[in-house]
Amino acid sequence: MAVTERPSQLTEQSNPIVSRLRAVVLSKEGILFLIMIAAMLILSLLTDKFLTTNNLLNQLRLVTEIGLMALPMTFIIITGGIDLSVGSIFGLSAIVMGFLWQDSGWPLELAIIMCMVVGTTAGFMNGLFIVRVGVPPLIMTLATLALYRGMALGVSEARSARGFPDWFFDLGQRQFLGIPSQLWILLIAAIIAGIVLARTPFGRGIYAMGNNELGARFSGIPVRLYKLAIYTFSGFMAGLAGYIFTSRISTTRADMGTGLELDVIAAVVLGGTSINGGSGSIVGTMIGLILIQLLKNGLLLGGIKGDATIVIIGAILILAILINNLVQRRTGGD
């Protein structure tokens, strides 16, 4: 949490421990964390099946794919951009992997690598058009949302790939050291992304671009290169997530992950990243991600119908931002 406090609060002199604690608790992430704890307490009162290690770990398994894509999305939204094509890249990469193996007879190991290559290339294309031609990110990724999904449909002709060998499911369905295998990837990726964003010149450059792109360029930040990097990274993560998802559900189809981009963006935005750019954090995104999934699961276990759950999550998305806006305004944060 230490990475989240603001410089203005660091300079306060009176009782450093109290003011530091105040800063952490009243930060966007702190408030979100409190909301999450409160939600967990209420949910565990609703049903005793909710607060068990097994259930919680299983729920985290289910959000790994969204979580992986939410990491680069945090970077992108902080720069003031957006990537709507992640759901389509996710579907396209998985389809290419499935059909290279099933129809073209490639070794599965190579097909998995191609899955990541396709994702990375798709993301790179987004980035290239955004920085070279100057297409606004929303429009570029709206176009490739249709394009990449269309390619997945065209390649597969709406057939599915299935019947993967047993070892393929290790990542998606089994455990490693007592924790769902794919959760390790998310954990490590989140830690690296968090450190890169908060502690490296690259990360600071991302914030600078979101606050004032022209200013960032004049102060010597390679704005274009950084942008290209984060959209490519986004494509790579979508490819990786496509592989993990296929491994989890044992099959792949062209319409896989339709609408997933909105889940990813919801997690990032609920996590306190400003959609206008300039602020946000990986910690927040992870809390947002977990909060949404725990609510879905807890409410379901508590006997509330799945559709009511969607309503509640929608309301919480708006409320959480509202509460945060009010608190930040009062404490003089943005």
Partner: peptide, 13 residues
Amino acid sequence: AYWLQAVQGTLIL
């Protein structure tokens, strides 16, 4: 028909 969406995406672009 399977390539319809891909062509549409290209044309938007």
